[in-house]
Amino acid sequence: MTHETTLAGYRRADGDPEHLYPEYKSTRLRALDKPLAIQPHTLSEITGPAYGHGKVRELDHDLTRQHEGEPLGERIIVTGRVLDGDGRPVRNSLVEVWQANASGRYVHSGDRHPAPLDPNFTGAGRCLTDGDGRYKFVTVKPGAYPWGNHENAWRPAHIHFSLFGEAFATRLITQMYFPGDPLFEHDPIFQSVRDPKARHRLVSTFDLETTEPEWALGYTFDIILRGRESTPFERPHE
């Protein structure tokens, strides 16, 4: 017996960077040069992993409490909501973050920047969003750091975010920046998002409400994942 159920695909995102942005040198050999193949969303794309449930420990969201002592740097709280493109909360979904320490150095064997490592800071965290789609991390503000893209190239301070959402189609890896960073205009990764409004969505907001007196400054950063198509497609159902 066959009956029809209707499932909606996901809207395409148009604020994303193009694959090739020559000012960001590494894209020159790694950006595709054939057009993307267009396909309708099937059951494969509108499903996706519910990964991370049961894996997150109580202190995984607090990057300042993963070692014996406290890390050096400016303690901050970063919080926000993960929403779908229709403004609905994405609940119980894994958020992974990683970042450089306050000196601009990553705990990674590939990072050759001669800035000190901090024995009390790894810079990796994760949490699940709550019933309102909210996440919260406690960390230190990452430092800017130099990189080899061009003469005197520096990355603005940023925190990497990895999000799943509810489907394969909504998977997103991005970077959160801090307001008013003078390095924005010199950073080809930030500038690879050509639309200024879209670029602005990568910048967190300083928020006095989130700040905890005598303890930590607060920043808010909402993350919007792709929304569903309003016109469902028909799915045959055995």
Binding site: A13, G87, G110, H160, L202
Partner: peptide
């Protein structure tokens, strides 16, 4: 309410 998605950025090397 339709909201524009947060753009993608590279995963980087680290």
């Amino acid at each position: 309410m339709s909201m524009e998605p947060t753009p993608s950025q590279t995963i980087g090397p680290f």
